[in-house]
Nucleic acid binder design. Structure first.
Ligand SMILES: [Mn+2]
Ligand SMILES: [Mn+2]
Ligand SMILES: [Zn+2]
Ligand SMILES: [Zn+2]
Lengths: 138, 138
DNA sequence: TAGTAGATTGATAATGATTATCATTATTAG
DNA sequence: CTAATAATGATAATCATTATCAATCTACTA
């Protein structure tokens, strides 16, 4: 229910948009402090989540989850549920051309060692759960 | 310099290999406890890192890093330095067919909302740093 | 074989990011 | 203006991970 952005949220959004280096929440906090000195760290976290939920920014790397280990070391891809955080193996390879990979790596200036495709969406359980919640509201 | 795996490391490796759900370090710890009751959590973390370094298992999701925010919400891909953790935007799109995405999502049972390609390797700075360290050893 | 240097281990404390609490402050409705 | 409600931020709590360090194990030597 956050329709309009207040001054704090505006400042946070501006900081994230104007920084080209994927800042952490605490980096955002430090930058926002300069223009909104009274803001607290809790508000920055709250606002970041809210902005991400509204699709105005994007969050990379699951914070609420711990590091996970994979016994399958052959290259493969994953699907991640954006609702519950489930991390699933993709049973099929998502093919992409060797040439596209090479040129992308070169463009980023990275020496390519491996790659991964991540699909984001709703897992079966969450899909059902959300549909039920929806129909219950009516 | 860890050539052979001792009983603890064997047990950890066995747990990760035999679990098909990308366990966290603490989940591995709980499972390993059943066969090696005296093992401590510090050792599990140590062994997991060691196994990952040897390429025997793989770790997913940056633990040592905080969640990062991205002001660019248009779909795009990233390059991640495996040495320093730098997270870079790919300036070019890694094309992959809509059909491949759809079928992979269906195979995983996920309702696809978006996707991301991640390239892993060495960034320019780390490449140079490691090369220098190498030549210094000689 | 006993002794010892060095590596390994695990209990526990420390750290760092994120979240929960909650009293205070701002906003809105009447 | 007042009461109800929502937003805020200081601070405590939580949780995963890492650092410490004394105890234990493991070659290797005398
Ligand atoms: Mn996997
Ligand atoms: Mn980006
Ligand atoms: Zn889910
Ligand atoms: Zn690097």
């Amino acid at each position: 229910m956050k329709e309009t952005l207040n001054a704090n949220a505006q400042a946070v959004l501006e900081v994230v948009r104007s920084s080209h280096n994927h800042p952490t929440a605490l980096e955002v906090y430090e930058a926002v402090r300069k223009v909104r000195p009274r803001i607290g760290v809790a508000s920055v976290y709250r606002i970041l989540h809210s902005l991400a939920q509204q699709g105005l920014i994007r969050e990379l790397g699951r914070s609420d989850e711990a590091c996970r280990y994979d016994g399958h070391i052959e290259r493969h891809d994953h699907a991640i549920c954006t609702a519950c955080g489930a991390l699933l193996d993709l049973p099929v390879e998502v093919r992409l051309s060797e040439e596209a990979l090479r040129s992308a790596a070169q463009a980023a200036g990275i020496e390519l060692h491996s790659h991964e495709v991540r699909l984001y969406g709703l897992c079966t359980a969450c899909r059902q759960r959300l549909q039920q919640a929806e129909s219950a509201e009516g």
